[in-house]
Design a protein around this nucleic acid. Sequence first.
DNA 1: AAGTGGTCTAGACCACGTC
DNA 2: ACGTGGTCTAGACCACTTT
Lengths: 245, 245
Amino acid sequence: MPRMSQDAPTFSPLYRQIKALITQALEAGEWRPGQVIPSEQELAVRFGVSQGTVRKAIDEMAAENLLVRKQGKGTYVASHNDPRALFRFLRLVPLDGDLSHPTSVPLDCWRAKAGQEASRMLAIEPGAPIIIVRRLLQFALKPVVIDEIYLSGETFQGLTAEVLQSWNGSLYSLFETRFGLRMIRAQERIRAVAADRNASEALKVAEGTPLLSVERVTYTYGDKPVEWRRGLYSTAEHFYLNELN
Amino acid sequence: MPRMSQDAPTFSPLYRQIKALITQALEAGEWRPGQVIPSEQELAVRFGVSQGTVRKAIDEMAAENLLVRKQGKGTYVASHNDPRALFRFLRLVPLDGDLSHPTSVPLDCWRAKAGQEASRMLAIEPGAPIIIVRRLLQFALKPVVIDEIYLSGETFQGLTAEVLQSWNGSLYSLFETRFGLRMIRAQERIRAVAADRNASEALKVAEGTPLLSVERVTYTYGDKPVEWRRGLYSTAEHFYLNELN
DNA sequence: AAGTGGTCTAGACCACGTC
DNA sequence: ACGTGGTCTAGACCACTTT
């Protein structure tokens, strides 16, 4: 039973150190999204701690949606390919209870250099290459969200309009499968704005219609920002649902 | 070690039964908000289970913001009088990082009978007495939110404009202190709307300005809805911040 | 039957706050 | 010194899934 560093001013309990080790392994790609990780007992042996300590580490990671426990089967690496993950970041719900899945329609995809704002949001150098994606989100064939998505050109090399076109699934599942980038958490800043010319055409609403402006920064491991997007949501037939706990 | 009912189709682990018992005691007012509850050891003896089982029950309740643990001191009943609880339900943040506390200015308070919508939201009979409160929320003396709040007249007997005027603190801390009602969780539905005459006057913005419409239903123990409110947020100098995990 | 996560226990020791 | 929550361990048994 290794005590590790337990008395420094930066005290951290054993299970958190184990958590960090598991996270590192995850980050290094030792186990891929959707796969099982070793059993608690195996991990306990590997790290030289008791099974209960591994358990507590995994408990926290499951609460953070990094891992998924399945009784009798094992513990799995969370994946955006899992259909249940779709609405984790998309909080838009139809006014009537219609639960049809949204469709992503890529409109455009081009390269540019990071300006002030993009460089700050993505924590990259101003002038660094970025990729900008415009896409429409449809619910039951009706346009509801128009998104403008900024990505670091460095980490998303090879992302083109064709790749987007040919992908059937969520954007984040593409990022995960194709670029090995797992979106862990996000922060959204919501304001109300009037539809400009572009938005009104894309969303088929009158110019000046109030829309939700949703700015999102999405982070991967180590709180590293990897995506910045701004979405304009038409709330004629949908609303943004938020649970406060 | 009582096994209780552990094999019925409605299986529930011991710690969840303990959790239910603690919640009942909380609901019954055995310990009041802000006070300490008995130690884990005492509760273990009282319920005839091990300390670890009580611990797990309290763990979940702390995660749900029903209880607050303080190492070395004890476990406390969560309270809206705690200043840290203020921003639990108010997700509005100034564009510049100014962290001034908002002020609530009650504008009006009158009695009415529940209509269709209010009765559905508050789960009361149509025609039942309700109280409607209009109030303004100011950040640094600037009007930012205009709220219309619907409450069941039954549970909020004695709530008058005078009571609201004389209360220095959040609305929920008033509800808690004066009416013994603790707000546990809430659900918000957000849309974008244009400012009508009333809103434009109250918020000092032009008519037609896009505003956030935030409809909130707030629940107390047992998922019982006790408040329905609609707020119009001016997002000229503030935004609604949401963390997605 | 065997393996996995889930629950429960009992006991030891640590960190924090108060007396 | 004492009491509280926080951590860690070891072992038993339960529930679920697969073989």
